[in-house]
Design a protein around this nucleic acid. Structure first.
Lengths: 225, 225
DNA sequence: ACCTCAAATTTGTAGGATGATTGGTTCATT
DNA sequence: AATGAACCAATCATCCTACAAATTTGAGGT
């Protein structure tokens, strides 16, 4: 019986791992061009095939992007976003909204428990931005402020994994939401719920925070139908 | 302005796409061995390098797994799991538990709303298995039954994305949970909460289902401290 | 029946050759 | 001098052959 399933890593996996480290450590900055194949072959001391299989893996995962004739560039430091995007595209907006509901409810609950002074200031800033955009009837600005508000709420949860999941999901979901944005009939209701949510988080009223999230998600579900 | 960013797909990307389709459509069943490289070279009419880069991409994404000397096998139909697991491994058990809380609470809520007769039968089967394992003091069997019960609950939500996320999370969390399993002092309490949860779902009592989830997650958090 | 070892199968790695794309340079024409 | 065509260099894309390493299979001998 083997203690480790696959104790020995293949050369390709080793190269992939090294490149991942280079990206995550920031040694290869996002957006920058990485050395050409021939240089990397010498650097890692592997054949062209091995290197290319490693590069191609990371391209598929969304960490790198290659452009023929130009070079290979660092695109992202996390593979989660691309994978999420692929998966969400296969899901209905309804399903995605329910998962978003799960994350936002938890985020609001934790935010109400753990928000610190810095969080409160950010929340107040963004809810004010929402109000101003609503008064100015600037739908585009309102959407942007709304997204920033939601991200601030999630950040107040102080759970990095939760924040990460939400951010990657947000990227993918935003486009879909945008389509429905025009029909925001009662933005005032939408805004009032958000105000209520922010107040609940600041007051550390967990139940009211959760109820607020349930409220605007329910409102959203009506739109979709 | 380019209508399509990269209108032309590379050969590797085309092969990847075709293989993805074969997997998602079920033509290549999960767990089955795919044709050897030489056959696929003829099938897709590409060189070995091109094919291998495509295969390697899907291996990295977690859809395939290659074993030297044996062959290549279909591991999963979703790339989300691997990316998710990679991210989870960088998180603390506490953070992961809170995200699990988010998913399980939502799963329980939706299950209480949408569970059908088939779901009820599965739930009853697995809760009975839990009880039997508890009576027999068989910790290992209890853990397995517990996992199956939780998966059944999630499946009752009838949200494929939610189920997908939970399943992949479950895999990563299970090991960590296993470490703490020995100290399950009050398994009876744990079991009673689960019974309560299943009853609530069957009775379509949404609030009681949510409270049950909150209950055993809170119990879990105590263990971690 | 059991063991040994060679052959076949399959993936892993290496290295070379050529094509395709991009960006820049050179140079002749206007 | 400005323009544009032709050329060239860098880089990735694809294909090819060859050999190595791991696994399974089966023939052959004990």
């Amino acid at each position: 019986m083997s203690i480790s399933k696959t104790n020995r890593l293949s050369l390709v996996e080793q190269v992939v791992s090294q490149i991942e480290t280079l990206i995550e450590s920031g040694e290869w900055e996002i957006g920058s061009q990485i050395p050409p194949e021939m240089d990397l072959i010498k650097q890692f001391d592997v054949s062209r095939n091995t290197l290319r299989e490693a590069i191609r893996s990371l391209v598929y995962a969304g960490l790198l992007i290659t452009k023929q004739g130009k070079g290979t560039f660092v695109k992202s430091s996390s593979a989660l976003g691309v994978a999420f995007q692929r998966r969400i595209q296969q899901s209905s907006l309804f399903e995605t909204l329910e998962v978003r509901h799960a994350l936002e409810r938890q985020g609001a609950q934790l935010a109400a428990i753990r928000r610190d002074q810095e969080d409160i200031e950010k929340l107040r800033f963004h809810i004010t931005a929402c109000q101003k955009a609503a008064e100015a009837k600037d739908i585009k600005a309102y959407e942007e402020a709304d997204i920033q508000l939601h991200k601030s709420i999630m950040c107040s949860s102080h759970n990095a994994l939760l924040i990460d999941l939400y951010e990657h999901m947000e990227d993918s979901v935003h486009d879909s939401i945008h389509q429905l944005a025009g029909m925001s009939s009662d933005a005032t209701l939408h805004l009032s719920i958000h105000c209520n949510l922010v107040e609940a988080i600041i007051d550390q009223d967990v139940n009211r925070a959760i109820d607020s999230v349930n409220g605007y998600i329910a409102q959203f579900k009506k739109f979709i139908d």
